[in-house]
Design a protein around this nucleic acid. Structure first.
Lengths: 263, 263
DNA sequence: AAGTGGTCTAGACCACTTT
DNA sequence: AAGTGGTCTAGACCACTTC
């Protein structure tokens, strides 16, 4: 680098000076480490590095992008904070995956009032293709009437039905998802989505309310009519903030609670 | 610094090599920036720098602690990520305060289904001193029977009663808290706690369930008996992870929802 | 112009893992 | 011994705010 180098300079990076082509806004320049971060994210999104993979070392990335190791470090720091990658001292930096003990409860906040958390059993009730209802289409950012896969399941802790869940997935992405595959798969669905449909959930937004169980729900959860339940509506996003799952769960909270940390 | 300096070295810092006196564990050394972070946190906890105050610049702290600016930066980076301080380019670093627009909704996650969030009106129903019930004492880490201040209030959005809340505060800390003061105070209670009782909440843990409104609750929220409500139990902590508030809110969620981001 | 936080570099050494 | 991420330093310059 010449001494006149400005950190706002393009630096010869492919796709640098980012934020230009993405939207029609003025060509503002982001810091170098943000550009590096975007480049690494592209590698994740494109599948160049898949979940569980080791990504190139900081030194190699620094050489490749013609920046200092410190700049690469800051980029990876943020990716790590966002749970897109996991650093392991002495080993390297790995693409985050849902196939890990530490990821099991990242999107499942229902905890037993007493005792330790463990993953629930899974009973698939229904899997079918249907045309997206207007509301679901809007949330998934697809066209109303587009094909979606609908899943209905009940999850049980220690034999006690506790979660009744309905999911809607874009048919275009989850083509070929069958009840059989869901039934034989153990663990969080996001693991299956990641491995078999190359779709890695990185973020979700939930809206929580209290409702009373209707006849159908009461039967499936084996509770009285009008039993108060948590209604948890979730939209999950993959890279690029693209919504790829809509989910509504009804949680029985007589022996469990939804746990949340405010900071 | 001599060239032989190791970052594990005490560095002449008062209280450095921390983690020693705090507990009886083995005298492991933490990284320098963690020690600096602990020193700055002490300044916050002791009241040397109060909420809203400008803390010394990075350069000055670096000189004071005999470390590089980069090390101070990393310490403040973490404090900033934990919302203990707020950085403002060109101005300096300030102690976080609950008297700010950005802090209003940090601990209030109930959002209107349509329209923009705004702060609710506040009706104090009851304030009294009582002896801590066993459960509250346990959660506040005080002795059962110790004095606590009990508060009961209803919060309304656009005139509609929506939140019924009960709070328990350690009497030793909140001595002199009266109904009058609570009634005349506008905005989040944490602002008042911070200003008048030198107690700054930095973190909270919530447990959420669904319950049905009983007679008492139904009247105060103007809903039918057994209306499903969110029950939100919260423990709030100040510096040093010391619990200083127990709260239970009942949220009416027909026009609002509890919003949560999973990442 | 001076002071603040924000970015970037280059180089050193440490802690940990694998070969 | 070699390679990885983790810590620390020193110095330069940029962006923003205030005087």
């Amino acid at each position: 680098m010449s001494s006149a180098t400005s950190y706002s300079t393009n630096n010869g990076l492919p796709g640098a000076g980012n934020g230009i082509s993405a939207s029609g806004t003025s060509p503002t320049f982001s810091p170098l480490y943000q550009q590096i971060k975007a480049l690494i994210t592209q590698g994740l999104q494109s599948g160049e590095w898949k979940p569980g993979d080791l990504i190139p070392s900081e030194v190699e990335l620094a050489n490749r992008f013609k920046v200092s190791q410190g700049t690469v470090r800051k980029a990876i720091d943020e990716l790590s904070a966002e749970n897109l990658v996991v650093r392991r001292q002495g080993k390297g930096t790995f693409v985050a995956t849902h196939h890990e003990a530490r990821a099991q409860f990242r999107f499942l906040r229902l905890m037993p009032d007493v005792g330790n958390a463990h993953y629930p059993d899974n009973r698939i009730i229904e899997v079918k293709r249907l045309r997206a209802p207007a509301e679901v289409a809007r949330l998934l950012d697809i066209k109303s009437g587009d094909s979606v896969i609908f899943i209905k399941r009940v999850q049980s802790f220690d034999g006690a039905p506790t979660i009744l869940e309905e999911l809607w997935l874009p048919g275009a992405i989850f083509k070929g998802l069958t009840a059989e595959r869901l039934i034989e798969y153990k663990g969080p669905m996001y693991g299956l989505f990641e491995t078999e449909f190359a779709t890695h959930m990185i973020r979700a937004a939930e809206r929580i309310r209290a409702i009373g169980a209707n006849q159908d729900v009461a039967e499936l959860l084996a509770v009285a009519l009008n039993t108060p339940l948590l209604s948890v509506e979730r939209i999950s996003y993959t890279y690029g903030d693209k919504p790829v799952e809509v989910r509504r769960g009804l949680y029985l909270t007589d022996r469990h609670h939804y746990q949340n940390e405010l900071s």
